[in-house]
Simulated scan of single mutants.
Amino acid sequence: MDHLTKLEEMLHLANDDIKNGLYDDATNKLEKIIDIDPGFGKAYNHLGYLYEVKFKEFDKGETLYKLCLEKSPMYPSVYYNYAVLLSTLGKWDELKELLDTAMNIPGIVKATIYNEYAIMYEQQGKLDKAMDFYKKCALNTLDKNTVNRAKDSLDRCKMKKELL
């Protein structure tokens, strides 16, 4: 088994631990991957997710996502995860820059990125811009659930506009 295959296998096992709620075990596996190969960016993304979502250590999560972007800038998952964190923290300028970059990453799901733009604008009260991006989200997917979620979000924005 070559070096990269071994690291991918370890990452897969860490993912299984995350799915099974074994966060400490997953953390240990991910830190071991980084010890073996500090340039293996995917491990930083998964660790960042754990620190952000499971341990609520947002600063540590952000640092880890930045490391992933530095080591593996073509890894789509980090763009989704880091976007959610930046949105949670209200770091709009950084979020816009991240989403602009994400749109050019091969394999990125554009509908998901459009949805993140829409959420960003909605949270800033820029409802017309948000609605434009919710429409782009719906029009750039073949998934019925994504279309329905975008329609619900459009309805929510329309209700907010009525309140203004």
Score class of each variant (00 low, 15 high):
Glu116Asn: 15
Glu52Leu: 07
Leu4Ser: 12
Asp37Ile: 01
Phe40Glu: 05
Val147Ser: 03
Lys160Ile: 14
Val78His: 04
Lys71Glu: 14
Lys144Leu: 12
Met131Pro: 02
Glu162Val: 04
Leu99Gln: 05
Glu62Thr: 02
Leu154Thr: 04
Gly48Ile: 08
Leu142Gly: 15
Leu7Thr: 05
Tyr121Gln: 09
Asp37Lys: 08
Asn20Lys: 12
Met103Ile: 11
Ile18Lys: 03
Asn81Gln: 12
Leu139Thr: 06
Asp25Pro: 00
Val109Gly: 00
Asp25Lys: 15
Tyr23Arg: 05
Leu30Thr: 09
Cys157Gly: 14
Glu52Met: 13
Ala43Leu: 02
Cys137Thr: 15
Ile33Pro: 01
Lys135Asp: 03
Lys160Arg: 15
Trp92Pro: 02
Lys126His: 13
Leu95Ser: 02
Leu22Pro: 00
Val53Ser: 15
Tyr79Leu: 03
Lys6Pro: 00
Asn145Phe: 11
His12Cys: 01
Val147Ala: 00
Asp24Ser: 15
Lys161Thr: 10
Val147Phe: 07
Gly21Cys: 05
Lys160Pro: 01
Thr63Leu: 07
Asn140Leu: 05
Ile33Glu: 10
Leu64Phe: 09
Pro73Ala: 02
Glu57Val: 01
Lys6Ala: 11
Met159Tyr: 11
Phe58Asn: 14
Lys96Met: 08
Asp93Leu: 08
Phe55Gln: 13
Met10Ser: 11
Leu163Phe: 09
Asp93Phe: 02
Lys54Ser: 14
Leu13Lys: 13
Asn145Glu: 15
Tyr80Val: 06
Tyr121Thr: 09
Met131Gln: 15
Trp92Arg: 10
Tyr23Ile: 13
Thr88Val: 10
Ser72Leu: 07
Lys42Val: 10
Ala43Arg: 06
Thr5Cys: 00
